[in-house]
Every structure is written in C-alpha cells, then in structure tokens.
C-alpha cells in the first residue's frame, strides 16, 4: 500500500494532460495537443515500467524463481 501516491500521480497526470490538450485544441493548435497527449502517455508508461520491474524483483526474491 506504500505506492498509493504513485497511483494518484498517474491519475492526476492523465487529467492534466487531457485538460492541456483540450485547451490547446481550443486555441487552434491541434498538433501540439496531440503531442502533449503522447508525452503524457509516455510518462505514464515509464511509471508503470518502474512498478512492474519492482514487482517482478520481489516476486523473484520471495519465490526464489531464478
């Protein structure tokens, strides 16, 4: 339960990115909006990779799987 803040960070990131892309689209720069969306997605995936690698590390240590 220690990484609950990570989950909230991810959700906040999604909301902020959606908001920014909406504003950018309204301001007439669609390509910038999509760029921001892609960047937000990449950051989210990086967070996900960190959590997954940590999970598999602890899995290997608990079940001595290697």
């Amino acid at each position: 339960m220690v990484q609950l803040d990570l989950l909230f960070k991810l959700a906040g990131l999604g909301v902020v990115v959606a908001f920014i892309s909406m504003v950018l689209n309204r301001a007439g720069r669609e390509e910038l909006g999509t760029l921001v969306t892609v960047v937000g997605l990449v950051i989210a995936l990086l967070l996900a990779v960190n959590v997954i690698s940590e999970l598999f590390g602890s899995l290997k240590s608990v079940f001595s799987l290697y």
């Binding site: 989950l7 991810l10 999604g14 909301v15 990115v17 959606a18 908001f19 937000g40 997605l41 989210a44």
Partner: peptide
C-alpha cells in the same frame, strides 16, 4: 478524460 491512459492506470 483520457481513454488510453485508463488502461495504464488499471495495470499499474
């Protein structure tokens, strides 16, 4: 708000 981010949040 962000359909493709939802999957990633669920996985994380």
């Amino acid at each position: 708000w962000q359909p493709d981010m939802a999957g990633v949040t669920a996985a994380v």
